[in-house]
Amino acid sequence: MPSLNLPTLMREEISAMWHSTLKSMLIRRAYTVEMLENEGMNVINPTDGIRLSKDKYLGYYYLKKCGINIPETYASNDEMHTYFQILNSKSKNKNDKFVFKPMSGKGGIGIIITGEKSTAGDILSMFALNNKVAIFQKFIKNKGDMRIIVVGDEVIGGIYRIAGKGMNKNGISTGGKAVAFNVCDELKEISVKASKAVKCKISGVDIIEDKENNDYKVLEVNCSPAFDGFQKATKLNVYEKIADYLLKECKR
């Protein structure tokens, strides 16, 4: 977003605007986006897209509501009680692991994977101590996950993200490796549907193959994905694709 104050932006003859959200400025920028939307500007991504993709609890609700498969997910006003209820349920496999993640976040920060009861208890205690709400999901065994970039109604490419040696997170920002792959029609359909479910026009959709249940699960939809690792692996110019899309939006 250019360094202009709001009255100046409102005077400019701008048909459409794309902003790459920085977490340190998220709230202020979201307010600015909402103001510009109310003035009739086509802002990409819109306020709802920011809100639904940044709030995991709400985002998972909208994904599920649109019929999109997500991992087995839990959220509660009393996460500790809920977690131990799950552990004591008959359906719980003693070898199950869980992924604990903050309600909002980026780059894998705050995400912890464990199957140890005492460790999980400590994790939830730390969330509570810092007045943070945790979401936890059943861990899906994998050798990597997928990041698929969606621009409008089009999938422009995908990468496998493979965890670095000794790591259990696949994200590139946490040391993972990116490998380009050809996105099949099924994954294209899931990705575009997931992006639209959380009201995004440009997004990075994270998907994992659940071999145990023979399907794909959407892990997350990012309204402001990082493109460096993706571009390096795919040799695609994402910004060029976004510019083409913005030009089309301006002509609408």
Rank of each mutant, 00 (worst) to 15 (best):
L4F: 14
T8D: 12
M10K: 15
R11I: 00
R11V: 03
E12Q: 13
E12P: 00
M17L: 15
W18E: 07
H19G: 04
S20G: 07
S20P: 00
T21D: 11
L22N: 12
K23N: 04
K23W: 11
K23A: 03
L26H: 05
R28T: 12
R29P: 02
Y31D: 08
M35N: 07
L36C: 08
E37Q: 07
M41R: 12
N42W: 09
V43R: 02
N45A: 10
D48M: 09
D48V: 01
I50R: 10
R51L: 10
R51Y: 08
D55I: 00
L58E: 02
L58F: 11
Y61V: 07
K64I: 01
I70W: 10
T73V: 09
S76C: 03
N77E: 13
T82R: 15
Q85H: 07
I86L: 14
N88L: 12
S89T: 09
S89A: 13
K90Y: 14
K92A: 14
K92H: 15
N93W: 09
N93P: 02
K94R: 11
N95T: 10
D96S: 14
K97A: 07
F98M: 10
F100A: 08
P102H: 13
M103V: 10
S104W: 14
G107P: 02
G110P: 13
I111W: 11
I112L: 14
I113R: 13
G115A: 11
K117S: 13
S118Y: 11
A120K: 07
D122H: 08
S125V: 03
M126P: 01
A128L: 11
A128Y: 13
A128T: 14
L129G: 02
N131W: 05
V133L: 08
V133T: 12
I135N: 09
K141T: 10
N142E: 04
G144Y: 13
D145W: 10
M146R: 14
R147M: 05
R147A: 04
V150Y: 10
G152A: 04
D153E: 12
D153W: 05
V155A: 01
V155R: 03
I156F: 08
G158V: 06
A163P: 09
A163T: 05
K165T: 11
G166N: 05
N170Y: 05
G171D: 01
S173K: 01
A178D: 00
A180C: 08
F181A: 01
C184I: 09
C184D: 15
E186D: 09
K188D: 00
S191M: 05
S191N: 05
V192D: 04
V192Q: 02
A194T: 03
A197P: 04
K199D: 05
C200V: 04
K201A: 03
K201M: 07
I207D: 03
I207L: 03
E212V: 11
N214H: 09
Y216R: 07
K217Q: 14
L219Q: 10
L219I: 15
C223A: 12
A226G: 13
G229F: 01
F230Y: 02
Q231N: 06
Q231P: 01
K232W: 00
A233W: 08
T234V: 09
K235I: 02
L236H: 02
K241L: 00
A243K: 03
Y245M: 01
C250W: 04
K251S: 12
